[in-house]
Structures are given as structure tokens and as C-alpha cells.
Deep mutational scan, measured.
Amino acid sequence: QNEKLANELKSLLDELNVNELATGSLNTYYKRTIKISGQKAMYALKSKDFKKMSEAKYQLQKIYNEIDEA
């Protein structure tokens, strides 16, 4: 289960640069939040902690959705 979550989180991290570029014309909230979420996700992957990875995955998905809707 950890392996599956780690792969999903890696996949979301692969999209980080594209989504970060998409924040160029948006409010600074999005820029700041996506950077923080990305850092948390990288830390969670290194720690291999299921709870941290779950939270990081949720945060990344949430900010990606917010950027898409903005």
C-alpha cells in the first residue's frame, strides 16, 4: 500500500513544474501554496511515512484543482 501511494505521489510531483508555471498570472497564494505543497511531498516521499504521504498527496491534488479552476 505504501508503494502504491508513493507512486501516486511521485506522479503528482512530476506535474509540479507544469502547475507551478500555470500560477504565473495567478494570485501569490497559489505560487506560495504549490511550492510549499511540493516541498512537503518530497519530504514525505523521503520519510516513507504513510500518513505524511497521504496528507501531501491530498494537498497537491487540492492545489492542482484550485489552479485548474482559477
Rank of each mutant, 00 (worst) to 15 (best):
Q1V: 11
Q1R: 11
Q1N: 10
N2T: 15
N2C: 14
N2F: 15
E3I: 09
E3M: 10
E3T: 07
E3G: 05
K4R: 11
K4L: 09
K4P: 04
K4G: 05
K4I: 11
L5I: 07
L5R: 01
L5W: 02
L5K: 01
L5H: 01
L5A: 03
A6G: 03
A6T: 07
A6N: 02
A6F: 14
A6V: 09
N7F: 12
N7P: 02
N7E: 12
N7Y: 12
N7Q: 13
N7A: 13
N7I: 10
E8C: 15
E8F: 05
E8K: 04
E8L: 05
E8I: 05
L9G: 00
L9K: 00
L9H: 00
L9Y: 01
L9N: 00
K10T: 05
K10H: 05
K10I: 08
K10A: 08
S11D: 09
S11P: 00
S11E: 11
S11L: 12
L12R: 00
L12S: 01
L12N: 00
L12G: 00
L12K: 00
L13K: 00
L13T: 02
L13C: 02
D14P: 00
D14Q: 11
D14E: 11
D14A: 12
E15Q: 14
E15I: 12
E15K: 14
L16S: 01
L16F: 10
L16A: 02
N17D: 11
N17W: 15
N17Y: 14
V18N: 11
V18E: 08
V18Y: 14
V18R: 14
V18K: 15
V18P: 05
V18C: 13
V18W: 13
V18S: 11
N19V: 14
N19W: 15
N19F: 15
E20K: 12
E20G: 06
E20I: 15
E20V: 15
E20D: 07
L21P: 03
L21V: 10
L21C: 09
L21Y: 08
L21S: 06
A22R: 15
A22E: 04
A22N: 08
A22S: 07
A22W: 09
A22T: 05
A22C: 11
A22I: 12
A22G: 05
T23C: 09
T23D: 05
T23Y: 06
G24E: 14
G24Y: 10
G24M: 13
G24K: 14
G24H: 15
S25I: 07
S25A: 11
S25C: 14
S25L: 11
L26T: 03
L26P: 03
L26H: 04
L26F: 04
L26A: 03
L26E: 04
N27S: 14
N27F: 04
N27T: 10
N27Q: 08
T28H: 13
T28P: 14
T28C: 15
T28Q: 12
T28L: 11
Y29Q: 03
Y29N: 04
Y29E: 05
Y30N: 03
Y30M: 07
K31F: 07
K31M: 07
K31V: 07
K31R: 08
K31Y: 09
R32E: 14
R32S: 07
T33G: 06
T33I: 14
T33E: 13
T33C: 15
I34F: 04
I34R: 02
I34V: 06
I34K: 01
I34N: 00
I34Y: 02
I34A: 02
K35D: 05
K35S: 06
K35M: 11
K35H: 07
K35Y: 12
K35F: 11
I36W: 11
I36L: 09
S37E: 13
S37D: 03
S37H: 11
S37P: 01
S37K: 07
S37T: 13
G38A: 14
G38K: 14
G38C: 14
G38R: 13
G38N: 05
G38Q: 11
G38S: 12
G38L: 15
G38Y: 14
G38M: 15
Q39D: 08
Q39R: 13
Q39L: 14
K40S: 05
K40L: 13
K40N: 10
K40Y: 14
K40Q: 09
K40W: 11
A41H: 01
A41E: 01
A41F: 02
A41R: 00
A41G: 03
M42P: 00
M42H: 08
M42C: 06
M42Q: 09
M42E: 07
M42Y: 09
M42T: 05
Y43R: 13
Y43D: 15
Y43I: 15
Y43T: 12
A44E: 02
A44Q: 01
A44Y: 02
A44N: 00
L45N: 01
L45D: 01
L45E: 02
L45V: 03
L45C: 02
L45M: 04
L45P: 00
L45Y: 07
K46Q: 12
K46Y: 08
K46P: 01
K46N: 09
K46V: 10
S47H: 06
S47I: 09
S47C: 06
S47V: 10
S47M: 10
K48H: 06
K48Y: 08
K48V: 02
K48A: 06
K48Q: 09
K48F: 07
K48C: 09
D49Q: 03
D49E: 04
D49Y: 02
F50N: 06
F50P: 11
F50H: 06
F50I: 08
F50K: 04
F50W: 08
F50C: 04
K51T: 10
K51Y: 08
K51D: 10
K51C: 13
K52H: 05
K52M: 12
K52G: 04
K52Y: 05
K52W: 05
K52S: 08
K52Q: 10
M53H: 00
M53L: 03
M53Y: 04
M53P: 01
M53I: 03
M53K: 00
S54N: 10
S54A: 12
S54M: 14
S54E: 13
S54K: 11
E55F: 07
E55H: 06
E55W: 11
E55R: 08
E55G: 03
E55S: 05
E55M: 07
A56L: 04
A56R: 00
K57W: 07
K57I: 15
K57Y: 14
Y58V: 10
Y58G: 06
Y58E: 14
Q59E: 13
Q59Y: 13
Q59I: 09
Q59P: 01
L60H: 00
L60W: 00
L60G: 01
L60P: 00
L60T: 01
Q61D: 03
Q61T: 08
K62Y: 04
K62C: 11
K62E: 05
K62T: 05
K62D: 03
K62V: 05
I63T: 03
I63L: 07
I63V: 05
I63W: 02
Y64V: 06
Y64L: 14
N65H: 13
N65W: 12
N65C: 12
N65Q: 11
N65F: 08
E66G: 03
E66R: 06
E66L: 10
E66V: 04
E66A: 07
E66Y: 06
E66H: 05
E66C: 10
I67R: 02
I67G: 02
I67A: 02
I67P: 01
I67V: 04
D68W: 15
D68K: 15
D68P: 04
D68Q: 15
E69P: 04
E69L: 12
E69C: 10
A70E: 05
A70P: 03
A70N: 05
A70H: 05
A70D: 04
